[in-house]
Amino acid sequence: MKIGVCLKQVPATDTRIRVNPTNTGILTDDVKWEINPYDEYALEEAIRLKQAGKGTEVVIFTLGDVASEARIRDGLARGADRAVRLDDPAFAGSDALGKARILAAALQQEGIGLVLAGRQSVDTDTGAVPAMIAELLGWRQASWVDKLVIEGETFTAHRAAGGGTREVVTGQLPAVITCDKGLNEPRYATLPGIMAAKKKPIVVKNAAALGIDAGSVGAAAALVVEEAMSLPPARPAGRILQGDAATVAAELVRLLREEAKVI
């Protein structure tokens, strides 16, 4: 079974976000890019499954421009075998459904039997693309998974069900699994890994190569339109309470009750 890993580059989590002058996105000039943290769990799990004999090959799928190849190389250095980068001017401005169409076509073309992805990417924070891929391919799915067992044609996964409850779910492969923190401890690339990654192939595919209608993806096909981006309103200046522990504790409780009215 070939294992596909959806991997995306995102601004490092300590990036101070600034909105561009047209309010259509963020300023990226001094952004440091990283592999989306949740995708690291997906990649790690894929490598471990292959090492445990549950997979034959680990293939990275990235929808992104040439700049994302640095992150793809990092993934290859950690242990993935090869990568498919999806890039076409027609892809620009795709919404989640458009992105899912592109990725689903590529995953299908490569004969992938198990897709691992991060539970969400920490830029758009949508977390919808993997479930959409599952739907488009007619596959099973489990999301926000922190334990995964593959046995023959079946997966068993522990997923966050909400309300602090976790559910153990099972289903048949092929499947799309989204990975949460706690699933594993991602490895870093080693020097031999980095050297080996230089020779691993990254194939670039466009809409024609994927056999998808360019009109079904990109800005024109997007059903969700982002109108304007803004920064959250600044919080009003707070108040520092003075005095010994007993005094500040009593004063805080009074303020929470009488001024803020939250208790």
């Binding site: 963020i26 830029d123 059903l223 969700v224 982002e226 109108e227 981006m229 959250p232």
Partner: peptide, 12 residues
Amino acid sequence: VYAGKALVDVKI
């Protein structure tokens, strides 16, 4: 978006 570091207005 960006974990709440920015907000986006969306129409469908």
